[in-house]
Nucleic acid binder design. Structure first.
Length: 909
RNA sequence: GGGCGCCUAGCUCAGUUGGUUAGAGCAUCUCGUUUACACCGAGAGGGUCAGGGGUUCGAAUCCCUUGGCGCCCACCA
């Protein structure tokens, strides 16, 4: 017999092993002719621990995967890890600094040694991550696990780089980049975040002009003053006029420039420019062919142009420069509390300094992609695949965000001054450049010391993981040959759904679309499902600096089970919306899992009591042998199956999960199982069974059948507990639940009358309770009741004990011919009348008013539809289906009207 | 500055083309230990669906508007 409570910690690991050993995770175990269903698992960074972000991703994807697997699709879920260049290198460097007191590990260890150290670290964390993914129950195909630094993936990364270079999509040039002086590398635009800071805002006299700045330290080289060409205040100065101005380190020869980039309403309407350290200024300088000069070094310190300030870090120099200008009488005014945004590196937290640097870029406006028979730019393709509906984003509102991002997309800087990653396949010899997958054969070449942005390589993830590693190892094959010959790529690409957090829509999702359409001519995925961020109970971001707010899945799983964690992150959540998670919520779903456990236990006990082996139950009794309650249960099961199937198919996971939750708890446990407990008159099949000495065996078949279906339907959500219970209730010839097929909706079991009867039974009890409450009858005191009905007699009579128990009724009479009693409280249901012979009547005035209002409404509706149908206007603009729909409505509401009319009549209207 | 989202019971949230009396979980209160489960059962209280206006026979749902909160993007020299 099962223990009284489910103990997930005791069984989960063993169940996972059983799944894995069974081969169920591989597509080879699926029907060979099944339609493919593929997910490329977003690779967790190879830097550490599984967190809630991973947990929610794994839970969602595992639900998609298990559902489709049970539906008979040929399912592939590819797991893997990402080398995460900047993040990983930073972590290892920090560790070495801390533990070995080496101030600059890059300098001390050198490239080779440091990479070795990083590799070792990554190997260890990848092992950790693998185990943690298993803890969540993720049914991914470990035999196909990939890593962004695998030789095959390195090969595709390089191939695409080289191809893009040859077609002019990748170029090398001096451009404005985001320079992180702390990490000593460039960053992409998306890796820069802005923080609002309050800093002083100075206005200085610059020749005849007054200019304002919050960054005086960039002003050393300023020799251009810019005004808007239509600003009347500065009409007397012409474009190209020059003048002498006393400035920080002596006089400068300055030139007036007119450009529309200046906002006349801001400050004094004129500004000096620093083209080397500001993107807007850079643009102005480019337009007018102005000189650009570097002021701040890549180490964040001022260069020799700063004169006496050279070598100083900017924070130190700034007040000194202001002081000097003030002494010279050039400081006009200071606004102390000026709010402005400061660019911060999301990687290292340091202040980002715009710099001009020679880097590698992806040209997003180059007309170089073959797409749908046309030559399109990268931007156009990215836009087209979503506009055309080839890729569907859930929730839809992110379409707009995506398009907006594309509109503002600038060339993507892909080179990083980091050692950990895919080294750029470019070699230099003097002024020569060689770009190729293989190093140049002759001597004297030196490879570019930079590596590629992690996102460049990992944006090929949906297909680089499907490339056959053996083929990729053959240098004689081209990339298109490799793709053409790789069986997995041919069978499983494009993938079906990409599930990830909305926070990496730009970083990754958009770039996968970019890279994959370019390199393979296919979309990477058909559906994008974006989940929201998980927050603390106060709605704050979970952060390591507040450990008390953190929920660690690795603490939760042993305590509450992976199933409870999965449910708590998915049921009641909408895609793309942030959600809050806290222990009570998880405990609630743990209770649900336990409820399911005990319901199963009850079914097993019933079987044992009846000396029936549940595993031998293979089919339902004949329809004629089913009680009304059985029929209602089976019918409801069909409705639920349909709803859950539709919900999962359309990625409405919360709704489907919620449906199952209330079906299991409210209908199956609190109603059907409770009925089972009463001394209900035996159903016809039970009578038969009685003769064979098997009491109440009839219901057992429905009980077992329903439980099995529940386990199947719930399996994607809570795989562990359902698998465990399945082993007790399955038929002897079926295997693991993970490989079981999905329940079909059996139309012959749909029985509206039985379901209606079930509702009536519930209503009868409620009516009796209402009467008790209205009459102020003490809860303990029993009453007498008469039920008057011609319908549902079988059900009500069979459930007499149930009704009596729940309604605290001492004597209950069924009377198909009863007239309303004089001294009785009575309430009418559409087909049942309940009398409780007592003093006085309950007040039905409020209910009567409600019904009257509704009736009026509906009468008006009917009138308005009639008018509409007759009006030429309506028919002229209404296609036939609209009329049909209106007529459909009319019918529905006519039916509704009839019911309301009956109730009104019953109430004495 | 541009865009997006949210405001529903004390708390956390569902609510799919507008349609019976707006739902759930937790919390609170009452009753109940009858042999699946106290990680339980049966109930109760608690909502002008942020405010205002409009469309409609009918609005939490659609439109406009005001307010509050949050996020994203751009960026201020």
């Amino acid at each position: 017999m099962l223990p009284k409570a489910y103990n997930p910690a005791a069984v989960e690991d063993a169940i996972y092993k059983r799944w894995e050993d069974s081969g169920a995770f591989t597509p080879e175990s699926c029907p060979a002719d099944g339609e493919p269903f593929t997910i490329a698992m977003p690779p967790p960074n190879a830097t550490g621990q599984l967190h809630l972000g991973h947990a929610v991703m794994l839970a969602l994807e595992d639900i998609f995967i298990r559902f489709q697997r049970m539906r008979g699709k040929k399912v592939l879920w590819v797991p893997g890890t990402d080398h995460a260049s900047i993040a990983t290198e930073a972590v290892v460097i920090r560790t070495i600094q801390k533990e070995e007191k080496i101030a600059d590990p890059r300098k001390t260890l050198g490239r080779e040694k440091l990479i070795e150290r990083i590799q070792k670290f990554v190997e260890e964390s990848r092992g950790t991550i693998r185990n943690q993914v298993r803890k969540m129950g993720a049914s991914c195909d470990w035999s196909r696990e990939r890593y962004t630094m695998d030789p095959a993936l390195a090969r595709t990364t390089n191939e695409v780089f080289v191809d893009m270079y040859k077609r002019g999509v990748i170029y090398r040039g001096h451009r404005m980049v985001n320079w992180d002086p702390k990490l000593q590398t460039t960053l992409s635009d998306d890796e820069v975040v802005y923080e609002t800071r309050t800093e002083p805002f100075y206005t200085f006299q610059y020749g005849p002009f007054q200019i304002s700045t919050s960054r005086p330290e960039t002003k050393f080289g300023d020799k251009y003053v810019v005004a808007h060409p239509e600003d009347e205040r500065y009409f007397k100065y012409k474009h190209g006029d020059t003048f002498e101005a006393e400035w920080i380190n002596g006089p400068v020869h300055a030139t007036v420039i007119k450009d529309t980039a200046v906002d006349p309403a801001f400050g004094t309407g004129v500004m000096t420019i620093t083209p080397w350290h500001d993107a807007v200024d850079f643009g102005i300088a480019e337009r007018h062919g102005l000189e650009k000069e570097q002021i701040i070094g890549f180490d964040g310190k001022l260069l020799s142009i700063a004169g006496e300030f050279s070598g100083m870090p900017i924070e130190k120099a700034r007040p000194l420069i202001v002081e000097k200008l003030q002494k010279k009488g050039l400081l006009v005014s200071t606004v102390e509390a000026h709010e402005h945004n400061v660019a911060i590196s999301s990687r290292g937290g340091g202040i980002v300094e715009p710099q001009i640097k020679e880097q590698w870029f992806v040209d997003v406006n180059k007309r170089a992609v073959d797409w749908k028979g046309k030559k399109m730019t990268i931007k156009e393709v990215m836009s087209d695949v979503v506009h055309s509906g080839d890729i569907v984003i859930i929730p839809e509102r992110f379409n707009k965000t995506y398009f907006h991002w594309i509109d503002h997309l600038r060339d993507w800087c892909i080179s990083r001054q980091i050692w950990w990653g895919h080294r750029i396949p470019a070699w230099y010899r003097g002024s020569e450049i060689y770009v190729g997958v293989q190093p140049p054969g002759d001597k004297g070449w030196e490879q570019d010391s930079d590596t590629l942005d992690t996102w460049f390589g990992v944006s090929q993830w949906t297909w680089s993981t499907l490339v056959d590693p053996k083929l990729a190892a053959d240098p004689a094959l081209s990339l298109s040959d490799i793709l053409e010959k790789s069986p997995d790529f041919k069978a499983f690409h494009p993938t079906s759904v990409m599930e990830t957090g909305y926070d990496i829509l730009f970083f990754w999702v958009a770039r996968m679309i970019l890279m994959t359409t370019y390199a393979t001519g296919q979309i990477p995925f058909k559906t994008v499902y974006l989940h929201g961020m998980i927050r603390t109970r106060d709605g704050k971001k979970m952060s390591k600096s507040h450990p008390e707010t953190m929920i660690d899945p690795l603490d939760i799983i042993p305590k509450y089970g992976a199933d409870a964690l999965r449910l708590s992150m998915i049921v009641g959540q909408s895609p793309g919306a942030d959600s809050r998670l806290y222990e009570e919520k998880i405990a609630g779903y743990r209770n649900f899992v336990n409820k399911l456990w005990n319901a199963s236990r009850f079914v097993l006990m019933q079987c044992e009591e009846a000396k029936v082996d549940p595993r031998m139950i293979t089919k339902l009794p004949k329809a004629s042998e089913l009680s009304l309650a059985d029929r209602a249960m089976l019918s409801k099961l069909q409705t639920v199956t349909k709803k859950v199937t539709d919900g999962l198919t359309e990625y409405r996971l919360s709704e489907a999960g919620d449906t199952l939750y209330s079906f299991v708890w409210d209908d199956f446990c609190d109603w059907y199982l409770e009925l089972r407990k009463e001394n209900a008159p035996p159903s016809p099949s039970a009578i038969v069974a009685d003769q064979e000495g098997l009491r109440r065996a009839g219901n057992l078949e429905v009980l077992t059948h329903t439980l099995r279906k529940i386990l199947q339907l719930l399996h994607p959500y809570c795989p562990f507990v359902t698998e465990e219970l399945w082993s007790h209730v399955k038929t002897t010839d079926s295997g693991l639940l993970i490989a079981k097929s999905w329940p079909e909706v059996k139309k012959e079991l749909v029985d509206a009358e039985a379901e209606e009867a079930f509702l009536q039974l519930t209503s009868v009890v409620q009516v009796i309770r209402k009467i008790r409450a209205d009459q102020g009858i003490p809860p303990g005191k029993e009453i007498a009741a008469i039920i008057h009905t011609k319908k549902w007699v079988e059900l009500l009579e069979s459930q007499e004990a149930h009704i009596r128990r729940l309604g605290k009724i001492g004597s209950l009479t069924f009377d198909t011919d009863a007239k309303p009693h004089k001294n009785a409280a009575s309430i009418f249901l559409p087909d049942i009348e309940v009398h409780v012979p007592l003093e006085g009547l309950i007040d039905t005035e409020a209910e009567r008013k409600k019904l009257q209002k509704e009736k009026d409404n509906l009468e008006r509706l009917v009138k308005s539809i009639e008018v509409k149908l007759q009006s030429a206007d309506f028919t002229a603009r209404a296609p036939e289906n609209v009329i049909a729909a209106e007529r459909g409505k009319l019918q529905i509401h006519t039916e509704k009207l009839r019911k309301i009319g009956e109730r009104l009549k019953a109430l004495g209207q």
